[in-house]
Design a protein around this nucleic acid. Structure first.
Length: 501
RNA sequence: AGUCGCGUGGCCGAGUGGCAAGGCAGAGGUCUGCAAAACCUUUAACGACGGUUCGAAUCCGUCCGUGACGUCCA
């Protein structure tokens, strides 16, 4: 039994075989830190976190590289070479690096809220300008890029002609045919710098007002959109590595261009397996800046957004995402999130109860049918994960186990109905999957605002008791809260404050 | 216009030829001082029309609807 993943490159599920077992190199396109991440961004990071964890569970030694794009991509190639980051920085009157730091911190915070493991290496684009310049020089030397007016462009047509002969045309990943694209690429200003419309920038000359700029053989400028990922993946994972991941919207042009750049430099297809997660939609539409339908992660967590009925805990969102297969679109709705919230709570309560039990299971009065059923459900976890990470089916099986666990708890099923070995297996598999692979947390750990409500409730009860001169009750509340480490303080204005020690 | 994809019960979603997972919501019941939770039972779906097949949600065709890419995008 082995892991199979859907490879976008071959458009089929393939058995996963690392180039150098037990080592696995995985590169995932990270965020552009010119703004806060929204719900849609959460999906690849959670999906590939689960893949990372699962690969380690299978015994692989994984180097997981996920970049931070902190050098600006220009808004629109050829139009007005604007650096996205520096542009906004001017608006906010911040240093570009201050802005980058702010959103990087916010991103890291959200990732930890989701219980995502940090990647092994998290390189920044600005930290790898030298590598990018070296790569561009190499591409020029090989004749697949040309300089024009201080900018450098990749010669897509030449690449396509030469590499089609080698079975690797431009468009191999996305299934596009270059000739058709040339027809459909729209008119842009300043196109005359390029030999062909489909050429993309490797290096862009920086206009005078551009803040982020670096010295290069072609003058002062900044790197193009695609080159950073090629430079950093090559540097840290080698010329050929195992897995390249990202959202489906990056398949073209970003990943296509990465393939072209890296192939010219290293004479190899950079990655064996290209994995793409599908989009999170909202009313059926992709969540994105241009649609104006984004919900930022901090808004998800706080509930502070017109589309949100309530706050949603990070663990709820993580669970919601894992309830679907990563290659399907996933539609956001309050009803769906609320369903996930309740479901997760039910799952975690059953799981946590089970882990505390030491005396269930027997070797005698086992119910063979039930015992077999539990073993089957639990063993299938691995089968489903190996089938292109079908987390949805694993979770479905978990929910077939929940009523069994709860029935044992409520004594509708005798504690000895399962063999002790089955109970151990059940505990172990649930623990491995829930805690280690899916990394779910019970939402009470991140529901402090609800506990605040509980405290307010106690404070009010105490206030009412005091007004009745029922000091027995009021003191009981105060003393017992105090013993728990919550100090109530009566203010002069009649209100009550508290501190948690 | 093109390329790729999708259309499953009230909502979210599994499912690539063999009686349609799971969650949430709904209904009835058990338990409970009352509630909540839990448990049991249960209602309900494959966009349309053709075709291939003993058999199709699943394969093919046409149509309708819808999305992604194409332009910054997870």
């Amino acid at each position: 039994m082995s892991l199979k993943v859907y490879n976008s490159l071959t458009r089929q599920k393939e058995e996963f075989k690392p180039i150098n077992p037990p080592y696995v190199g995985m590169y995932v396109c990270g965020p552009t830190v010119s703004g806060e991440s929204h719900l849609g961004h959460a999906r690849p990071f959670i999906t590939f976190d689960v893949l990372y964890r699962y690969l380690m569970h299978l015994g692989y030694k994984v180097r997981y590289v996920r970049n931070i794009t902190d050098a600006g991509h220009f808004e629109e190639e050829g139009r007005e070479a604007e650096d996205k980051i520096s542009n906004k920085a001017v608006l906010e009157k911040l240093e570009p690096m201050e802005l980058v730091q702010k959103y990087t911190n916010l991103y890291h915070w959200a990732m930890s809220q989701f219980n995502n493991l940090p990647p092994s290496i998290e390189p920044t684009a600005t930290g790898h300008i030298v590598e990018q310049i070296e790569m561009i020089k190499k591409i020029i030397a090989d004749g697949y890029a040309y300089e024009a007016n201080g900018s450098v462009y990749f010669d897509v047509e030449k690449y396509n002609t030469d590499f089609s002969a080698k079975g690797q045309p431009y468009g191999i990943l996305s299934g596009r045919v270059l000739e058709e694209q040339i027809e459909s690429t729209r008119e842009l200003d300043n196109q005359e710098e390029k030999r062909n419309k489909s050429d993309f920038a490797l290096w862009k000359k920086a206009p005078a007002e551009h803040i982020m700029r670096w010295q290069s053989p072609w003058g002062e400028g900044f790197p193009g959109w695609h080159i950073e990922c090629s430079a950093m993946s090559t540097k840290y994972l080698g010329e050929e590595f195992d897995i390249h991941g990202g959202g489906m919207d990056l398949q073209f042009p970003h990943h296509e261009c990465e393939i072209a750049q890296s192939t010219v430099c290293n004479h190899k297809m950079p990655a064996r397996y290209w994995l793409h997660n599908n989009m999170i939609t909202i009313n059926g539409k992709k969540m994105g800046k241009s649609y104006g339908n984004q919900i930022m992660l901090s808004q998800m967590f706080s509930g502070n957004h017109p589309l949100l009925d309530q706050p949603y805990a990070p663990s709820t969102i993580r669970f919601f995402i894992l309830q679907s297969q990563y290659r399907s679109t996933l539609d956001f709705s309050n009803d769906a999130l609320q369903g996930s919230e309740k479901a997760l709570r039910r799952l975690m309560e059953a799981f946590e109860w089970l882990q505390q039990q030491d005396h269930i299971g027997s070797t005698g009065q086992v119910d063979p049918a039930l015992d077999e059923k539990v073993k089957k459900l639990v063993t299938e976890f691995d089968v489903f994960m190996n089938d292109d990470l079908n987390t949805a089916k694993v979770i479905a099986n978990m929910f077939e186990l929940v009523p069994i666990i709860n029935s044992i708890k409520d004594k509708h099923i005798p504690a000895g109905a399962l063999h002790t070995d089955t109970v151990s297996l059940l505990k172990k598999q649930l623990s491995v999957y829930i805690l280690n692979i899916f990394a779910l947390q019970s939402s009470k750990t991140d529901n402090n605002n609800k506990l605040e409500g509980v405290l307010e409730l106690l404070i009010n009860i105490r206030k009412e008791a005091k007004s009745r001169k029922d000091f027995l009750t009021s003191d009981k509340i105060r003393n017992e809260l105090s013993a728990l480490g919550v100090q109530l303080k009566d203010e002069k204005d009649g209100g009550t404050n508290y501190t948690i020690q």
